[in-house]
Amino acid sequence: MQLRKARQDDFGVSQMLLATQAKNTEFAGYLRQRGGEAAEMRKQIDTLTTSLGSSQREVEGLKRIVNEMRPRPTTIV
């Protein structure tokens, strides 16, 4: 009877191990997928940051042009 109980316990533990390994494999796949998405987002952030820097330089250049076109006040002494 004790041997039968030990075998049942052993079988139960084996089943739990298999279930845990399956969940582990599933979770590892989930993490790989999320990691791929994070890498894509970092790439998009880098692209947007580069674009923003370019746009800011263009804005500064246009501001300089506008400032040069404005008439300067003249002071009469």
Score class of each variant (00 low, 15 high):
Ser54Arg: 05
Ala28His: 08
Gln56Leu: 12
Met69His: 11
Glu60Val: 15
Asp46Glu: 03
Ser54Cys: 12
Ala39Asp: 00
Arg64Asn: 06
Ser54Glu: 11
Arg42Trp: 13
Leu62Arg: 14
Arg32Gly: 14
Ala39Ser: 06
Pro73Glu: 11
Ser54Tyr: 07
Arg57Ala: 11
Lys43His: 05
Lys43Tyr: 02
Gln33Tyr: 10
Pro73Phe: 01
Gln33Phe: 13
Asp46Lys: 02
Gln33Ser: 10
Leu52Ala: 04
Val66Asp: 15
Ser51Glu: 08
Val66Ala: 12
Ser51Trp: 02
Tyr30Asp: 03
Leu48Cys: 01
Ala38Pro: 01
Gly36Trp: 06
Thr50Ser: 07
Gln44Ala: 06
Leu52Ser: 05
Glu58Cys: 00
Thr74Leu: 09
Gly36Arg: 08
Gly35Thr: 07
Glu37Met: 11
Thr74Val: 04
Met41Gly: 03
Ala39Val: 12
Glu26Ser: 10
Asn67Glu: 09
Ser54Met: 15
Leu48Arg: 01
Thr74Ile: 02
Arg57Phe: 13
Glu68Gln: 07
Lys63Leu: 14
Ala39Ile: 09
Glu68Lys: 08
Ala39His: 04
Ser51Gln: 08
Glu37His: 12
Ile45Arg: 00
Ala38Lys: 10
Gly36Ser: 06
Lys43Val: 08
Met41Ser: 15
Arg70Ile: 12
Pro73Ser: 11
Thr25Asn: 15
Gly61Thr: 05
Phe27Gln: 14
Gln33Ile: 10
Thr74Lys: 07
Met41Gln: 11
Gly29Lys: 03
Ile65Asn: 13
Gly53His: 04
Gln56Ile: 15
Met41His: 03
Val59Met: 09
Val59Asp: 02
Ile45Thr: 02
Val59His: 02
Arg64Cys: 09
Arg72Ala: 02
Gly36His: 02
Glu26Phe: 07
Gly35Gln: 15
Gln44Ile: 05
Arg42Val: 11
Glu58Arg: 11
Met41Arg: 06
Arg32Phe: 12
Thr25Val: 05
Leu52Arg: 02
Gln56Tyr: 10
Arg57Val: 13
Ser51Arg: 03
Gly36Thr: 07
Lys43Cys: 05
Leu48Pro: 00
Arg64Tyr: 04
Pro73Gln: 09
Arg64Gln: 03
Leu48Lys: 02
Glu58His: 04
Leu62Gly: 04
Ser51Val: 06
Lys63Ala: 07
Asn67His: 06
Asp46Val: 01
Lys43Leu: 09
Tyr30Ile: 14
Asp46Phe: 00
Ala38Ile: 14
Glu40Trp: 12
Arg42Tyr: 14
Glu26Pro: 04
Arg64Ile: 10
Thr47Ile: 09
Arg72Gln: 06
Val66Leu: 15
Arg72Cys: 00
Lys43Ala: 13
Thr50Tyr: 02
Gln56Gly: 08
Thr47Pro: 03
Met69Ser: 13
Arg57Lys: 08
Gly35Asp: 12
Glu37Ala: 15
Arg34Pro: 01
Gln33Asp: 08
Gly29Ala: 12
Gln44Trp: 05
Leu48Asp: 00
Glu60Gly: 12
Leu52Gln: 06
Thr49Phe: 00
Leu62Phe: 09
Glu60Ser: 12
Gln33Lys: 13
Thr49Ser: 04
Thr47Glu: 03
Val66Phe: 10
